[in-house]
Amino acid sequence: MLPWGNEDTQQLIDILGKYNVKATFFVVGQWVDKFPESVKALSDAGHEVMNHSDTHPHMTQMSKEAMKAEIEACNQKIEQVTGKRPNLLRAPYGDYNDTVVQAARETGCYTIQWDVDSLDWKNLSAPEITKRVTEKIKPGSIVLFHNAALHTPEALPDILEKLQGEGYCFVPISQLIYYENYSIDQAGKQCYQNTNE
């Protein structure tokens, strides 16, 4: 089993609720097995619950069929708890290649990367997390945070207040990405392609 707990989940839900923010939570199937009540609480609070694989492997070291099995197992677990089938995958470790993208598409998922890493998983202090995120963010950014990171609940209110004060609004990732007419660059970023030119 993975070491991640769920001790911060309700606190994160409460903080996001206070600022009227809906977020996307990528969860591992094994975490769904261990904490189905937390998965349901996230979904019931209006947050997206999406796929982060079933067992958190390095997917680029697997066959395409094994990748698809990882994705499908996690999708089924999330759907069983929430009643909603995920359509987004964040590959563990950000480890992806063309085969991961193809496997995800064949299971009905779009792959997601991020461009701002809070580094909360390195146990940075709340002011360090806040500074890192607020200095690196730009319109369209996807920011990576982790449940059960030591200082994320402490940093989150300051980050939300500062960025909302600067005019940023926060949306779940499904409302941010392109679903057609795009390519993915080597950094994992979607690039819109105007097919009408």
Rank of each mutant, 00 (worst) to 15 (best):
L2T: 12
E7N: 06
Q10H: 12
Q11Y: 00
I13E: 03
D14H: 04
D14T: 11
K18T: 14
Y19C: 02
A23P: 11
V32L: 04
K34H: 10
P36H: 05
P36G: 05
L42A: 08
G46V: 02
G46P: 10
H52K: 11
H56C: 10
P57S: 09
T60C: 04
K64F: 02
E65P: 04
A69C: 00
E70R: 09
I71D: 09
A73E: 06
C74M: 07
Q80S: 14
V81E: 06
G83E: 11
K84M: 03
P86E: 01
N87M: 12
L89M: 01
A91H: 00
V101I: 13
A104K: 05
R105C: 00
E106R: 14
G108C: 04
W114L: 06
V116L: 13
S118I: 09
W121E: 02
K122P: 00
S125Q: 11
T130C: 07
R132I: 02
K136L: 13
I137N: 05
I137V: 15
P139T: 04
P139I: 00
V143E: 08
L144T: 09
F145G: 12
A149W: 07
H151F: 09
E154K: 15
A155G: 11
A155Q: 11
Q164D: 03
G167E: 11
Y168D: 12
P172Q: 08
Q175I: 00
Q175M: 05
Y179T: 14
N181Y: 00
S183D: 09
I184E: 03
E197F: 03
